[in-house]
Design a protein around this nucleic acid. Structure first.
Lengths: 248, 248
DNA sequence: TGTAGGTATGAATCCGACT
DNA sequence: AAGTCGGATTCATACCTAC
């Protein structure tokens, strides 16, 4: 068992950890990862509160389309605890990241301002907001602009030299969601994650503290990077492990 | 003279005001416009004050650019005064807007969080962030994601009924900037403005307190809307007037 | 009218030198 | 030592010119 674990450690380009990312991150050493690419739960503030209240809010439909909450609830506790929690795990990410490591954090339009706040509160330098254009594969709303994009808060741990063996990257990624490519209700296309991972170099270690079904890891492995993933839900942890093992 | 003015008022689908928008807006009556679509100075760019303080012509067009365009002012505020100033003119816009009027405010990635703050501080309901994808015609940066998009903070004055005679709108607009279509250093393509203006109905009065070279107005007139524009710079005011007169 | 090839452009940013 | 200044950089696309 111990030997098998050792062999895995040496051979596999990935490792998955099962548990709460705040706790797992604390066990990772300082300055040990080259990049962070992650897709945290967007409205966790609400989830936290309902956790405390002992019931879950139905935030997602079965089809996988996200149901937005109505116009601003004015309940600041949600927003504040979301911000606080984000700052905690981002601070751990900061410690674990090497100097100059790039970081990409997904968010939606509603949480974008908070995300840029906590991103910088944790110490990262904010360097832009690339856009995932889901292309007209989203729910149209009459008289309004479609919520057709998700946003990626991008930056680095401290200065980030221009010349580091990485080419020029686009700023908008028009990529359709394919249902077949979707193992998690908020799962991102592997093709999209591959585009983001181009901000790293082959061989780099990419950390995803909210691995979900492991799309970041699949993209990392397929492009010659190494991967460290953390996932709390048993079922998604299993799916991620399975998908990653298929892609070695 | 007075008669001519009256005739103009009755015939022309637009009116341009020359002056500071804070002062001009105060002279507009309450609840008199159907929509606001505008592109204020971003006061963005540059980690150093001196980078922001430069002339707008040099700030935005350095790097071998040959075509010279007039500079514009009001683009050198720091974050706090930018926020304060935005709240002032947005509050006036709020007063001038009819109940339920949609509003679109352009911003860049750096000022996006501040813009959503002042937008709501002025009383508007925030409803989304449609994206202008400038498509790969932007300055590339090695090792980073290109700043390839600008953002539109979208919302309304109070509730906005879904059924109001307006169709479904996209959430990302991939539109290239054409030189021939650019009369201002930061001018927006008329085609883009036409897409945004679809959030209004034909015959609606669209207000742009930072009219610049008048692209919003041109789009408004070409799509059968009426237009009220305000511009402070004499040279751009003249350009806007000329372009609008050509499009009646 | 069409094609090919050269050039201009971009709502910046980095970095070293200097005050 | 924090703040300023100025030169170098990046490449896909649009536009222009020549044939």
């Amino acid at each position: 068992m111990g030997l098998l674990y050792l062999m895995k450690q040496q051979t596999l380009p990935y490792e998955m950890h099962h548990g709460d990312c705040l706790q797992i991150l604390q066990n990772l050493p300082d300055a040990s990862v080259d990049a962070i690419i992650t897709d945290p739960p967007y409205s966790s503030g609400g989830a936290f509160r309902s956790d405390r209240m002992g019931k879950t809010t139905e935030k997602y439909t079965l089809g996988g389309t996200k149901v937005k909450r109505p116009a601003f609830s004015g309940d600041n506790r949600d927003q504040r605890s979301f911000a606080f929690w984000c700052t905690l795990w981002l601070q751990e990410c900061y410690r674990v990241a090497k100097e100059g490591a790039p970081i990409c954090v997904f968010t939606d339009w509603r949480q974008l301002p908070i995300t840029t706040d906590v991103f910088q509160a944790a110490g990262f330098v904010w360097r832009g907001v690339p856009v995932w254009d889901k292309t007209p594969a989203c729910r149209p709303i009459k008289g309004r602009f479609a919520h057709q994009s998700e946003f990626i808060v991008f930056g680095s741990k401290g200065p980030m030299p221009v010349e580091r063996g990485v080419g020029c990257l686009a700023g908008v990624f028009p990529i359709v969601v394919k249902q077949a490519d979707k193992f998690h209700i908020t799962g991102k296309p592997v093709e999209l994650m591959k585009r983001l991972i181009e901000v790293t170099k082959p061989g780099d270690i990419v950390l995803d503290p909210f691995a979900g079904s492991g799309s970041t890891g699949v993209a990392a492995i397929q492009t010659g990077r190494r991967f460290i993933g953390i996932e709390m839900e048993q079922s998604y942890f299993d799916i991620a492990n399975h998908r990653l093992s298929q892609n070695v």
